[in-house]
Each structure stands twice: as structure tokens, then as C-alpha cells.
């Protein structure tokens, strides 16, 4: 993590309130992290249009717009095309992972999550 930068904006995109709360709880353990929650891909894009984010953590299976479509759109967006994206999903298949990575995701973590592992990955991308 960059020691000079003090604040990080992280967007959590997850339809399950339980998972949103758990991810927020884990993220709040990192000093200087501000969490914004979105319940699906469309909600995430709305929030990205008014805020700049340092990291996006997204689920794949969500109503209205899924996580893969969201990754695809973020990579085409001029402002956020370089933002690191971590996928957190129940889809544990190799094909799903390859598809997500091919679309531009930076990391792929399967549920149920281990907070220590997730924190390690998050810290790697919060630069």
C-alpha cells in the first residue's frame, strides 16, 4: 500500500446484504478505506459516475446487471478503465475464472471468503 496516500474509495457490488455487510466489515479494518455499496451492476455504474474509486469488489451473479458485464463496461470507461477489480463469487469453476480474467478482472476469489486472504489481495491492489 502507498504510504503517502491516506484515503481509498472502495466500491462493493453485491446483491446479498449479508455479504455486503461482511465485505464492508473486512474492508473497514484497513486504515483510510471509505466503502460505497452497490446492490447490482447498474447501481455500481451510477455510483461510479459520481465518485472515483481505487478498487472495485464485485460479485458475479446479481440481478439487473451481473458482475462480468460490469467488468466489461468498467474496462471501456475512460475514467475507471484502470481501476483494479476483484471478483468475489460462488462460481468456483476454472472456466468462470478464465472468463472473468479475460474480461479484465485483476483477482478472482471464491466464496466462502477467508478474510485474511481477501485482505491480502485487497492490500495488493490499494496503491
Amino acid at each position: 500500500m502507498n504510504s503517502e496516500k491516506k484515503e481509498y474509495n472502495v466500491l462493493i457490488v453485491e446483491d446479498s446484504p449479508t455479504m455486503r455487510q461482511l465485505l464492508t466489515f473486512i474492508l473497514k479494518r484497513i486504515k483510510g478505506v471509505n466503502v460505497v455499496e452497490a446492490k447490482d451492476g447498474v447501481d455500481a455504474l451510477k455510483k461510479m459516475s459520481v465518485n472515483r474509486f481505487d478498487l472495485v469488489i464485485t460479485d458475479i451473479n446479481m440481478p439487473i446487471m451481473d458482475g462480468l458485464k460490469l467488468v466489461n463496461l468498467i474496462r471501456k470507461d475512460d475514467i475507471h478503465k484502470n481501476v483494479p477489480i476483484i471478483i468475489v463469487t460462488t462460481e468456483g469453476g476454472q472456466e468462470d475464472k478464465e472468463r472473468a480474467m479475460a474480461l479484465g478482472a485483476n483477482a478472482y476469489i471464491t466464496k466462502p471468503i477467508q478474510s485474511a486472504h481477501l485482505l491480502e489481495v485487497i492490500k495488493q491492489y490499494l496503491k
Binding site: T18, Q21, F25
Partner: peptide, 26 residues
């Protein structure tokens, strides 16, 4: 978080949904 979510609503369908989320995600 699981217990917090379980007691966050009095809507029967929502409680079922939360139990489902806990079983899948956690």
C-alpha cells in the same frame, strides 16, 4: 453478521432469503 442479518427484518420471505444467503455465502 449472520445473526445481525437474521434479526434485521420481520418479513418472513426476507428471513428465508437471509438464511439462504448465509448457507450459500458464509
Amino acid at each position: 453478521i449472520a445473526s445481525y442479518q437474521l434479526h434485521s427484518t420481520l418479513d418472513f420471505k426476507e428471513v428465508l432469503q437471509i438464511i439462504t444467503e448465509i448457507l450459500i455465502n458464509l
